[in-house]
Write a protein that binds this DNA or RNA. Structure first.
Lengths: 209, 209
DNA sequence: ATTTTTGCACTGACCAGTCAGTGCAAAAAT
DNA sequence: ATTTTTGCACTGACTGGTCAGTGCAAAAAT
């Protein structure tokens, strides 16, 4: 019986429900952690019955894994976009890094809960979704590493920098500063935070104002 | 009664048991998270009976809170020590920051599990120990902020830097780079990692080899 | 003599996952 | 035109297991 449901583009209802579940799960898990969040809570916040969660996802873990993939996909796309746009505009690699810092901030500004959750789970070991997380982390960090490598090749960056560590440090800088911003000084503007990080990135800290 | 138990240093046996419980709890919770770790597991790994856990701590949460306080106390002391030692030796504020970066790395090298657990819990909201964590976080970041402020006052740093955000960014840089190191390139030496971060801190990234 | 630990059975709340059944709209049969 | 069938999406009560925390008597340590 032709399974493929009616409307073009795959049943919209289902997709809408999954989206609601993602949104409910991301905030709850960010606040409480994966284990402390119950499927009942997720269902209730999404406004669906518990059974619907299991109709749409094989298990609580699977829901979470797909959520991770979905979120990091958005981030990676956004970072790539920033780097490419800078390149197209003839900017330097420092400009590209700066654009990526901004893209990161914009992302965190829009999806603070996801970011929280990502950081909290990233360095855990022995968890079911560990491998998913590894893959997905690498995709994001790789974008930064790539820009660093190109910068070294072009002679714009010192060839003594450690690409992998520097990329991790840059990501950490943005991540922690942004979470600090959202948690403790949410009234500040994105531009404000961005310029503080730019200064640090470009070594304009030492020396008088 | 006399609550104040055995003379010199407080009853040692009890303290030894608590220490064993801290050590067991820290690794388990770092790996699995607080909620996914059972009291039975903690007791078993510490090699004590479950009843002993409850004889020494009022609850699982209390055990965890005291663990947090204990761990961050060690870190804060270590950061202060580094800053003061640099000052005594007549070093600049950049030197002090550099020494603190190293102290941070040494700490993470020695207590990777604690660091993991700390990062995972830091930005959560709505948790029982949230207030404990806030206090304890502020103590650690304040040490960095203090050095930045002194540097600005002395004209060594630009007076346009944002002390709070820059401190957070620096902490993040070290934290994420160090966790990356421990997770993905554990064979590298501390000196190696330290010099990569120093370079970044001092803006020696741009420019040829 | 007092403090601390042990071992172990027990309770009650909580929770992931299941399953029989409902509502609905499009398709097929009459 | 109408009845019947099919498949999809969803529902919510229920189950079986898990786990924090308790109670207590005996043992060990100080």
């Amino acid at each position: 019986m032709e399974s493929s449901s009616a409307r073009s583009g795959g049943s919209t209802r289902r997709e809408a429900t999954r989206q609601k579940l993602y949104e409910a799960a991301v905030t709850l898990i960010a606040e409480q952690g994966f284990s402390a969040t119950t499927v009942d809570e997720i269902a209730e916040r999404a406004g669906v019955a518990k059974g619907t969660v299991y109709y749409n996802f094989a298990s609580k873990s699977v829901l979470f894994e797909e959520l991770l993939r979905h979120g990091v996909g958005l981030l990676t796309a956004s970072l790539k976009e920033a780097a490419e746009q800078t390149a197209r505009a003839g900017g330097s690699k420092v400009d590209a890094l700066d654009a990526m810092v901004r893209a990161g901030l914009v992302f965190i500004d829009r999806y603070p809960a996801f970011t929280q959750l990502y950081v909290a789970e990233l360095w855990r070991t022995n968890r079911a979704w560990q491998s998913t997380l590894m893959v997905v982390r690498q995709e994001a960090v790789a974008v930064v590493e790539e820009v660093l490598r190109e910068g070294v090749a072009a002679g714009e960056f010192s060839d003594e920098i450690d690409v992998q560590l520097t990329a991790a440090a840059l990501v950490g800088m943005v991540l922690v500063a942004a979470l600090d911003w959202k948690s403790f000084q949410p009234e500040r503007s994105l531009d404000d935070v961005h310029s503080a990080l730019s200064r640090l990135l470009q070594g304009r800290v030492s020396g008088k104002g």
